[in-house]
Each structure stands twice: as structure tokens, then as C-alpha cells.
Amino acid sequence: MRKTLSLVLPVLIPSWQFFKTIEPSPRVQWARIDGDAPRWQEFRPRPQRLSPAQMLRRLFYSAAWNEALFLVSCAERIEAEPTAHSITEIQRRILATLPHTPDATLQFRLIFIDHNGQDLLYRSAPFPAHPAP
């Protein structure tokens, strides 16, 4: 009940403080852990260019981008206080985009970027490339 209240109250009394300050911005990176030095890759890198037609289409359907924004929220929650929910959400969505590689072990990390450069603020425990049953 308390959890429900904590989820509903910010909806009923919103703060509306959009872009109040521009904080360091998270990027989710993942790598295979197979003995060699991990080669970190950005999860869902943005395209170099979007045409006006693509922008218009995304007005009506932008599932992948909105998922990426949800992962930004998860990364910010992990930075504030790591929770199993946010970690699992990121793992699950990385797994869903990879080809099936049952024996691989993966890891993700969170890089926070600002105008001074970037900081590594979180590195997950290794996790298997197949989702738990």
C-alpha cells in the first residue's frame, strides 16, 4: 500500500521541473566477458542522421527510443541507489537485442558524460546470456 502511494502521489502532485539542471548523462554499455579485455559497446547507439520522414514516423511509433529513455531512467536510479529492478530491466533489454549465444557471459556498465568528460559510475556483476527460466 505504501509503495502504491509512493508511485501514485508524484502523478497526482507533479513537480513539472523539466530540465531544471542538466546533470551528467548516462550511457549504457555492454560487453562479452570471455577472458580477453572486454570490448564495450554502447547499447542502442543513436543514428548519425534522421530524415524528416523518420522523425514524423517516430511521432506515432517510437518504441525503441522510448525504451532507451526508460533505460536512462533505470541508470539514474542505479546511480542514486542500485536496485534489483533497474539492474534486471537493463540486463533483460540487452539480452533481448542480442543474437542467441547460450554460453556467453555478459556485463554492462554505466558511463556518465558531462562537459568535462566521462566517469564510470557502475559496473554490473557478470550475467549469463540466456534469460533465467
Partner: peptide, 23 residues
């Protein structure tokens, strides 16, 4: 002050997760 100087929006485009393309 960062918004009043335009710096905040500069940061949004420079490094935030929001711009939809690198361009």
C-alpha cells in the same frame, strides 16, 4: 544562470541522452 546564458541547452545538445541523432 546556465539557462539564462544558453549554456544549459548547449549541454542538452552536447552530451545529454536526448538528441535523436548524432548530427
Amino acid at each position: 544562470p546556465d539557462w539564462r546564458s544558453g549554456r544549459a541547452l548547449q549541454d542538452v545538445f552536447a552530451f545529454s541522452a536526448y538528441p535523436v541523432s548524432e548530427d
